[in-house]
Amino acid sequence: MEYEGILMQIEKDNLKEKWEEIYISYRKEVLWIALSCLHNLHQADDIAQDVFIKLYKIILKEKKIENLKGWLYKTTIRTCLDFKKSFWNKIFSKKEDYDLPVSEEINPFEDNNFKNLNKNLKKLAPKQRIAISLRFYKEMKINEIANFMDISESAVKTHISRGLKKLKKIMEEENEAYKF
């Protein structure tokens, strides 16, 4: 079912069914965005849950959403960034988490360049990571990324170029053989 671009308002009678339809249509997208931002399946899972519960609450209050896909992307990115900044994350997330290898599920590549790229994306700042992931994997345009991240196009370009420079540096330092 395509909800994109539709002014969405659901009647309360079939609220749960409609919500489930939306959930099934967009759950993969939302989890992917959260995963590309956090690089941790468990945290991404929690964020995806929060986003869908937020959506349910909004529908429950009979508020209108003009672009559902856009709303889901924006909310997921914002929730991920808020989570990164949150007091609870700073207290309870272990610093060692950042040194742990990215699981096989998130790093399914055979090519070493891709393996290194995905592993080292984790070391970038969250905004750089999101901008690069959306641009590289989802092939989004700069203006789309700017819209989803609620920042200007020039800011997106800066995040991408700085992130790319940092990535190249890390990858070069880590594996000299990556250059051929």
Partner: peptide, 14 residues
Amino acid sequence: EREKFKKFEGNLFF
């Protein structure tokens, strides 16, 4: 290779 991550689903988690 790029498509592999793009199509990542993680069904167990869903």
